[in-house]
Amino acid sequence: MWTYLLLFLSISLFVGVFARRAYVLKVKKNEPPVQKKSLIDDEPLDIDENKKLSKQEKSDISELCEKADVKLKVGEEEEAIKLLVQALAVDPANTPAQQKLAMLYMQKQMYSAATALFKQLGELTNDAVHYSNLGLALYQQQEFEAAKEAYQRAVALDPSRPQRFISLAQVYRSLDQLSNAVVAANKAHDMDPENMDFLFLLADLYVDSKNYDESVSVLTKIIEADPGNTEAKTYLKKVKKAKSEEEKV
């Protein structure tokens, strides 16, 4: 369940790429979004990782988590959230409960709450997955600088997943840091050269940078690999036209 949810949310990072392709060559690129005030609570978290739990407390937490799982299976997410919050009130450092609650917050689009939990999980576990999820939660709030730091931490801890570099590239793009975006996208492409989505993103980034020759090269590569790709052919025509118009100026 959680894998599919994260996959769905991660796809949102690509929505701008494909929706934008239809008009990216017709309008002037917008200025980078104005950064909103951070929604993250920077106060120190009152968590005692070495807290000794009594047998009764451990039993209570186990029972609450089991009840939450039952509620999730029947689609009662709100009740599951309440139960997990109760479990964390007993043991704030319980990472399985934190993980489940954070994912529920993502599902409910409660991104600020998810951010706080994923940040806490990252600090407790130093796990790349949690920093990647933190980056996604921050991205959904347009907290691009903080999202960049989270994804940078994720790829530093575990550079084996190309999707994380693509997510980082999208954050760089949102910050108008196009050269960094190209580097990150190329890293992902090197790891998964057959992925057409990665190549389309590279083509977009080169267009953003007005590096039309590189965009043409990437789109040509897509067409050579997939001669029937009409989207790439249409986009290639638009890029060549944009290049021609740029040269006339």
Rank of each mutant, 00 (worst) to 15 (best):
M1H: 09
Y4P: 03
I11M: 09
F14R: 10
A22I: 13
V24R: 03
V24Q: 07
L25W: 11
K29L: 07
P32G: 05
P33H: 10
K36R: 15
D41T: 08
D42E: 13
D48E: 06
L53M: 12
S54Y: 00
S59C: 02
S59K: 04
D60P: 03
C65T: 09
E66W: 10
K67Q: 12
A80R: 04
K82H: 09
L83I: 02
L83V: 06
A93L: 09
T95D: 13
Q98W: 10
Q99M: 14
Y105W: 07
M106P: 00
A113R: 10
A114Q: 07
T115M: 07
F118R: 05
N126V: 10
V129A: 13
V129S: 13
N133I: 08
L134K: 00
L134E: 00
G135A: 02
G135K: 00
A137C: 12
L138K: 06
L138D: 01
Q142P: 03
E143D: 15
Y151M: 07
R153T: 11
V155W: 01
P159H: 04
F165S: 01
I166F: 11
A169E: 02
S174R: 14
Q177R: 05
L178A: 04
S179I: 07
K187M: 05
A188S: 06
D192S: 15
N195C: 08
M196K: 15
F198Y: 14
F200C: 02
L202E: 01
V207L: 12
Y212K: 12
Y212Q: 12
V216K: 01
I222W: 00
I223W: 03
G228N: 12
V239W: 07
V239S: 06
V239K: 03
V239M: 06
E245Q: 12
E246K: 15
E247T: 15
K248G: 01
V249A: 14
